[in-house]
């Protein structure tokens, strides 16, 4: 069973885990993810591979608590184990030397954008980064992003740090200033990715988004993760998770994500009754 070798709290309800998974680490590429099942009774949930250290044989996962399954994972500490970890899954991001690229990460989306920014830099692209959060204490991985980007813009919704506003405000400025942007990659909440795609559309800039529909197996077997892209049904786990942001049906994606809202509430309530106090 994969062992957690190191754990940090990045922000309230956001945990950073380094997990021993040598076979996965040996193969992982930016853009790929794993399916994690914490214990016998847990759900299988998808998490992006934020970092893979081939020599050490470890991968890094960054998890934001949004419901029952992520809450259980955020509680883990070094020395704990994860029952099942399957990966790498999904198609790796296609990263080539193209010139100037923009990497936008919103909220927890900063974690999955980081390996992409790093790889863009490695292949010789000029990387402009934009990261944002609701408020200062929720901003994650700023230093790492700064190191991975030529220039980094930081926003907070409430203005408590960086510039006040949304990542899309910063992007709008960049788009106006910069001449030759080859691509924009955006990862974050669905409304953010949708807004980014709308911003870049008039410029005709290639825009890549990483979709996060509800998944079960992650191996193309169930169709739970289906999304509509350019009018065709795709399975995000095997055909994605990255797609052309200008062709994605975001409305459908948001609706499908809300399918189990009622059950999600029940799951959290049931867990609460068992008194699994946070950080106890």
């Amino acid at each position: 069973m994969p062992l957690i070798v190191e754990q940090r709290i990045l922000a309230p309800r956001v945990s950073w885990l380094r997990v021993a998974a040598p076979e996965v680490a040996a193969k992982a590429e930016p853009g790929q993810f794993v399916m994690v099942r914490l214990d016998e009774k847990a759900e299988r949930i998808p998490l992006t591979i934020v970092e893979a250290d081939r020599e050490e044989g470890t991968i890094v996962l960054v998890i934001q608590e949004v419901g029952r399954s992520t809450a259980d994972l955020v509680r883990l500490r070094a020395g704990d184990t994860i029952r099942d970890l399957l990966g790498p899954l999904g198609r790796p991001t296609e990263i080539e030397r193209v010139g100037t690229v923009v990497c936008v990460g919103g909220g927890i989306g900063v974690a999955p954008i980081l390996p992409q920014a790093r790889r863009h830099r490695e292949v010789g692209n000029r990387v402009l980064g934009i990261i944002g959060a609701q408020t200062k204490e929720l901003l994650i991985l700023e230093e790492e992003m700064r190191a991975g980007c030529e220039r980094l813009l930081v926003t907070t919704d409430d203005g408590s740090y960086g510039r006040k506003g949304l990542v899309t405000d910063a992007l709008a400025e960049l788009l106006a200033e910069e001449q030759a942007i080859a691509s924009v990659t955006a990862i974050g909440p669905v409304p953010m990715m949708q807004a980014v795609a709308e911003l870049t559309r008039p410029y005709g800039i290639k825009t890549i988004v990483s979709l996060n529909p509800i998944m079960v197996d992650g191996s193309g077997m169930c169709g739970s993760c289906r999304v509509t892209v350019a009018g065709a049904t795709k399975f995000a786990c095997v055909d994605g998770p990255e797609f052309d942001g200008h062709a994605v049906d975001f409305v459908e994606l948001r609706r499908r994500q809300s399918f189990y809202r009622e059950e999600e509430r029940r799951a959290v309530a049931a867990a609460g009754e068992g008194c699994r106090c946070r950080n106890a």
């Binding site: 009774k41 847990a42 759900e43 029952r68 189990y260 999600e264 029940r266 309530a269």
Partner: peptide
Amino acid sequence: LFPEYGTPIK
């Protein structure tokens, strides 16, 4: 067996 098991069905 939801919610004892984490995966929902509707």
